[in-house]
Amino acid sequence: MVRYIIRRLLQLIPVFFGTTFLIYYLVWRLPGDPFAAMCGDRGCPPAYVATMRAKFNMDDPILIQYFKYLGKLVQGDFGTTYQGLSVGKQMAMAYPTTVKLAVIALLIEALIGIAAGMYTGLKGGGFLDNLVLISTLFLISLPVFVTGFVLQIVFGFQLGIIDVTVPPSAPIGSLIAPAFALASLSMAYVTRLTRASILENKRADYVRTAVAKGLKPNRVVGVHLLRNSVIPVLTFLGTDLGALMGGAIVTEGIFNIKGIGNLVYRAIFFKESVTVVGVVTLLVVVYLLMNLLVDLLYAVLDPRIRYE
């Protein structure tokens, strides 16, 4: 197990450098001069441009720039934007909202998905099973911006139940509708995964044993069946949380949520390269660690899986 963890951590290193360098490279060669529109119509004085270029190491080769950036990063310094704002502070302000949204979305998809999957998996066949299967396919096909807009039009504009846009403080009540839009796709996957898993385990020997020794159906399902069936679902949810924490650019845009997705989207369009690189680096780290955690969790949850 320890050897497995070490091997996985070693595998993370090239991926971390590869992904962050790829992003760094792409972002810093974004077309256009970042200082072209900064000083109004008359353009920036050459001295200012020279200072700024030196400050952001823009005259170094890209590889050296990247390592200078990483060097600061390991000291916890995400750098400052061209306007002198601290990127770390910007992220600290935006991230709690994104995490809140991600957790609500995760709860929604887990609760509804597992419940629907368990129900259809246990019953198997029949009208409701088919209905759930078709509606999951439908949810998988709905692009998130369509879900978001439809929720906004129907529940926001026409019925007036939800807030059309989320206020900056992002209270939990106003995040429920965006979280639904965000969760709908994964909800469908969770449902199908739970259903398949239950169907497969329903006929397992240990379930037959549990029934044969006279356990109540509730206990057979709740303790024996569910606990074994939920393992693949949990790993999916873990990976998904990693993805959700990456911010939802589209959903945050539709509902005007001031989260990390919104921050990075604006940064890309205003050519705030430092912000983009900082946010993406953070997201990649979160995503990679989440995946690692899920792999380890798998080994803990399912003792049948052994790593050399």
């Binding site: 992904t19 974004l30 650019i249």
Partner: peptide
Amino acid sequence: SRIADVFFGLPFILGGIIILTTFRSD
């Protein structure tokens, strides 16, 4: 596999926006 992991680690929409803004002409 590691090279694939690098691209796999990029979130789809975020990566899409960055690549597209980098490579598209005006």
